[in-house]
Write a protein that binds this DNA or RNA. Structure first.
Lengths: 242, 242
DNA sequence: ACTATTAGAATGGTTTAACTATTATAAAAA
DNA sequence: TTTTTATAATAGTTAAACCATTCTAATAGT
């Protein structure tokens, strides 16, 4: 039920105090914390203990530390980076399979696209079509522009997440993309036919979103992601276990 | 493109070496690392620097540290805990609105329940029915057992996530529950009628899962969560902005 | 012989004081 | 005006000691 209160650890108390200050907005992104030698006085602790606390806060993604004059600990804008990193650890430690991540992505993209279909404004549709145009350009340039094409594909999915107006979907989708893209790179063969198929998918999705057809948009998005996933899993099996 | 190579930081090198040993399986869960005073010799570094590295590894969830004789740094089984923790941090930092969180939960519960409907084994169904029985008991005990009822409700949703066999859904749903329950506590009026309605929902969901009706299960789960969310948002508006 | 107490040792937690490395800025030189 | 150089502020590292916690084994009491 409860976690053991290890309050004997001074550095933990320092971590808590600084973290709370950041989460409550008393310290804002970009703010500079006092120098270590000042902080140590403020917390009535030693420099070593203080530095252990700073290391943890750095690892949590709450601060960055720069050396040199005018250096020090600076408050960071918390981003999805730490979530991605811990997810990456899970995958590398083989607690989480690529299949699970892919299945999760399929579900999330489906929901996102379906919500976007109900909320897209005229300006949003324009932006989606702009991205489609970019995708077409890279498609016409052929398989050498595969990477450009893929990044437009990702941008389009993130644009859909943005249209939902729901930050949670945006963060989660960003994290999933960060992690799964590494494997796409490893397991996806770069063929022009695949680019072509995916381009057709994207056109269909944007059309359904424009027409407000939520169910259709969801289905298309899931199929789209699913095709990617199938290609990848075939390749993965050919490679054998890693 | 590339991250700056801050290899001037010795503790980072220590972190990398120990982390790699864990990820490659040279160090297994439960293994005990040498004592600080030995490790410091092995890495040709000072105890302070070594301890900064251990703090980071601890924060990453790769080791735990115990004091006293026979204490030390023990390799942990990597779990979803860190993903949840960093996601939690992101949610709190972004001050994610109740509406966004609730909408996201609705989607995720829908997907989870739908997947579970396609995968539930006989034993899983038995467990779900056991939970239903518990819920019924708390329901009959009346509104004084509201908290017990809610925790069974949560357990049932997590059980469904477990049935999917997909760790990603499990950790994400756990995080969402942890965060949204704070609001439920604050904004949900504890009425017997609400308990009764929710119990009916749960029965319907389990039935649909048992019959393998994925689409129906999804709809019921979404409606179920949606009713909770509506109740809560009405209350929130009565309270005014927080 | 069994149990309760106590002392010791292994281990992480903290402190202090010094030294090293990095870097922005200001002073000096070209 | 530009380039170089010196300075000072800052994080990074080291070493040695001491404190706090906890397991284990020796001891004492029954």
């Amino acid at each position: 039920m409860f976690q053991q209160a290890k309050q004997n650890r001074i550095f933990q108390d320092v971590i808590n105090q600084i973290q709370e200050a950041i989460l409550q907005g008393r310290l804002k992104a970009g703010d500079k914390l006092p120098a270590e030698r000042e902080l140590k006085e403020m917390f009535h602790t030693s420099r070593g203990t203080l530095r252990e606390a700073l290391r943890v806060l750095e690892q949590k993604g709450l601060i960055t530390i720069k050396t040199g004059v005018r250096g020090g600990a600076f408050v960071k804008a918390v981003s999805t980076h730490q979530v991605s990193e811990s997810l990456d650890l899970l995958i590398r430690y083989q607690k989480l399979s690529l299949e699970d991540l892919a299945e999760f992505r399929e579900g999330v993209e489906g929901m996102v696209t379906s919500l976007a279909a109900g909320r897209a404004k005229k300006k949003d549709i324009e932006h989606l079509k702009y991205l489609l145009k970019q995708a077409k350009i890279h498609l016409d340039e052929g398989v050498s522009h595969w990477d450009d094409f893929i990044s437009i594909d990702n941008a389009l999915h993130m644009a859909l997440a943005h249209i939902t107006g729901n930050l949670m979907y945006q963060s989660v989708l960003q994290t999933v993309h960060d992690n799964i893209n590494k494997y796409y790179d490893k397991f996806l063969t770069k063929e022009e036919e695949i680019m072509r198929e995916n381009y057709r998918d994207l056109c269909g999705i944007v059309e359904a979103v424009e027409d407000g057809q939520a169910a259709k948009a969801r289905r298309l998005a899931q199929d789209h992601v699913n095709r990617f996933n199938r290609f990848m899993q075939e390749k993965e099996q050919q490679h054998g276990k890693l």
